[in-house]
Nucleic acid binder design. Structure first.
Lengths: 229, 229
DNA sequence: TTTGCCCCTATCCAAACGGCTAGGTGGGCA
DNA sequence: TGCCCACCTAGCCGTTTGGATAGGGGCAAA
């Protein structure tokens, strides 16, 4: 809990004696405790609050105005809300840097997160302790940090996917979710009160965006991207 | 690679009142550190080793013969190997209890894990610290522990799904993976050196087992069950 | 006001799919 | 030895798709 004040070297560019105040948002205790332990082994970092829901994140930031916000986008059942959260925080508290700490690596999400104000994106899997610590430091220094694999993924997709990816629209997502439940176009049309043609239209558009040619692939990609559950 | 930066306490031989010796297997440092912190806040529990790969788990168990093995099935890219691991450990070291600590809640995986020798299944999401600690204690006492939500899920599925679920066979999984890549039956047939009929055959069988009627749904269910990535 | 996006609809056709029945092979286990 | 099971193949038929093309209406930002 209490950070042990080990006199570490490299106070770097930051002003001496300044503690980096961090808020951690993750629905998973184990992860929260883990992050806290790793960071607080490091002089000058203190986790001042933990949050487990979207609303709690807002409250925590309001209350503590932290230097860094470490957040797992997947707090509830909807990653999209996590993204909005990035936007809201970076709008209202430009001084608070945001580090996304994700379970999965998805190009779509990375790009969206960065567009909405995230300053870094690390993937929990195979992350090393010092990568986390250095990432936090770098972000505080104003850098943008993309973890191993993340950077290349984004770079690779910048030319090709980025322009056409953007978002899937709400209707497109609805349709994909319906497809994942095994419904036919006719059934989806009936359920959504639209014509079968429209269903096909949405599917075609979503397919172009996710670069797939079969509904099964579409579902898989959307699923892998965390867009559907 | 280099494991934890904290010095381990070696306690010599196990005395009657000895500590519970625990091995933690998870590819995620944050999680490993978190589990260690939570457990070691508790007198009488010591994490004696950490492992990040399937092979390392075997080595660790060989070397330490722990009382409890806490494992995330999803160590590599193949959950199935995690399941085999449960089987191997519980065969070779019946005294070592196995607690599965999963990211996702999947009926199929829970049942498989239990059948293969796991003594408990907790879901990391929304898990509380004391649930973890109490779970470990209960398992050491010989109980089987199913976390909140897990138990009811299994119970609900016992009559319906269990008999027909069984396993998907290797070929069935191969086919599903191919489908998720957007391949047509013809393409899959070509890729797997079998006839289109056979592809359809595997799909039909897999569909019955996962109770789906459309390949898109099949992919989604397999994906949700962690059977494909 | 123009532009752009999202949403909706339509029709056409070849290809793919699902659901079925009815077989054949080889390995492992009782 | 016989049975079970994973695996493989075949053909049929109606339905569902993918892909393309060609529109119209509404709403908001530029």
């Amino acid at each position: 809990m209490a950070s042990d004040p080990r006199p570490e070297v490299s106070l770097g560019r930051r002003s001496p004696m300044a503690t980096t105040r961090i808020v951690v948002a993750d629905r998973n205790v184990i992860t929260r405790v883990g992050i806290r332990s790793i960071l607080e082994r490091n002089a000058g970092m203190a986790v001042v609050a933990e949050a487990t829901t979207y609303d709690a994140v807002i409250d925590a930031v309001d209350e503590h105005g932290p230097d860094i916000m470490i957040i797992d986008l997947d707090l509830g059942d909807d990653t999209t809300r996590g993204l909005s959260l990035c936007e809201e925080i970076s709008d209202r508290y430009p001084a608070t840097k945001i580090l996304v700490l994700a379970n999965t690596l998805s190009e779509l999400i990375v790009i969206e997160a960065l567009r909405r104000g995230a300053n870094g994106y690390l993937c929990k899997n195979d992350l090393k302790s010092d990568e986390l610590i250095n990432g936090v430091k770098a972000i505080q220094d104003g850098d943008t940090v993309l973890g191993r694999g993340v950077g290349s993924l984004v770079a690779k997709g910048l030319g090709s996917t980025r322009d056409k990816t953007e978002h899937l629209t709400d209707r497109e997502l609805d349709v994909i979710r319906a497809i994942s439940r095994g419904l036919s176009n006719k059934q989806i049309a009936h359920e959504m009160f639209i014509s079968e043609s429209t269903v096909k239209f949405h599917i075609q558009n979503a397919s172009k965006k996710l670069n797939s040619h079969r509904r099964a692939e579409l579902v898989h990609r959307a699923s892998a991207a965390g867009l559907i559950t």
